[in-house]
Computed example of a mutant assay.
Amino acid sequence: MAINNFKLKILSRAKLEVNEAANYYESKSKGLGKGFYLEFKNYSKTLRNIPFFEEKYNIVRILPLKKFPYTIHFTVDEDEKTVSIQAVTSNFQEPNSTRIKI
C-alpha cells in the first residue's frame, strides 16, 4: 500500500477543536496537551492511507481516538482522493453543540 494515497484537509473548525482540546489537557497536566495533539496527528496520518472507517452520518465517517475520549469526523472524496476532517468532538459533548453541520 502506498503511503499518503489521500490528500488531507482539516477544516478551520476542526483545527479550533483540536487546539481547544490540547489547551484543556495541557492545563490539566504539563505535556498532556502535546500527547493529545500527537495522537490526533498520528490518526490523521492513518486517514491519509486508510480513510474507510465507519460511516456514521450520511457521508460523514468517524474515527475515535484510543487514548483520549474524542472522535474525528471526516468525509472522503474518492474521486479527488481527499479526506476532509470536519470536526474533532469530545465523546461527552452534547451532540447539538458541535460545530459540525450534517
Rank of each mutant, 00 (worst) to 15 (best):
L63Q: 03
K15T: 09
P64D: 04
N19H: 12
K56D: 01
I3M: 14
I72M: 11
N96Q: 10
T89C: 14
Y70P: 10
E54I: 10
T98D: 14
S29R: 09
H73M: 09
N5E: 11
L63G: 01
E26S: 02
T71P: 00
K67R: 13
A14I: 12
F6Y: 09
I3Q: 08
K67G: 08
F6A: 02
E39P: 02
R99G: 11
E20H: 05
F40S: 12
S27A: 02
E54R: 06
K67V: 07
S44Y: 01
N49S: 08
A2L: 10
T71C: 01
Q93E: 15
Y37K: 11
F92E: 05
T71L: 02
S29W: 01
H73A: 14
I72A: 11
A21N: 00
N23T: 08
N23G: 07
I59R: 06
Y43Q: 08
S27H: 05
F52D: 10
M1Q: 05
N4E: 09
N5L: 02
K15G: 13
E20D: 15
L8E: 00
P64L: 06
L32V: 02
R13Q: 15
A2T: 04
I100E: 15
S97A: 10
T98S: 07
L63M: 14
S44E: 04
F36H: 07
V83A: 09
N5V: 05
N4R: 10
L8R: 10
V60C: 13
K101H: 08
G31K: 08
D79A: 15
N58I: 02
L38K: 11
T89N: 07
I102L: 04
D79I: 12
S27P: 01
T75C: 06
K41S: 07
N91L: 03
K101L: 06
S97I: 14
L38A: 14
I50P: 05
L11D: 12
A87R: 04
E17C: 14
R61K: 03
A21P: 01
P95Y: 05
K56W: 00
S97L: 07
T82Y: 08
V60A: 04
V60K: 13
E54Y: 01
Y25H: 10
E80T: 02
S90R: 06
L8I: 03
I10Y: 07
Y37A: 06
N58M: 02
A22L: 04
G35T: 09
R61N: 12
K45N: 10
I50T: 15
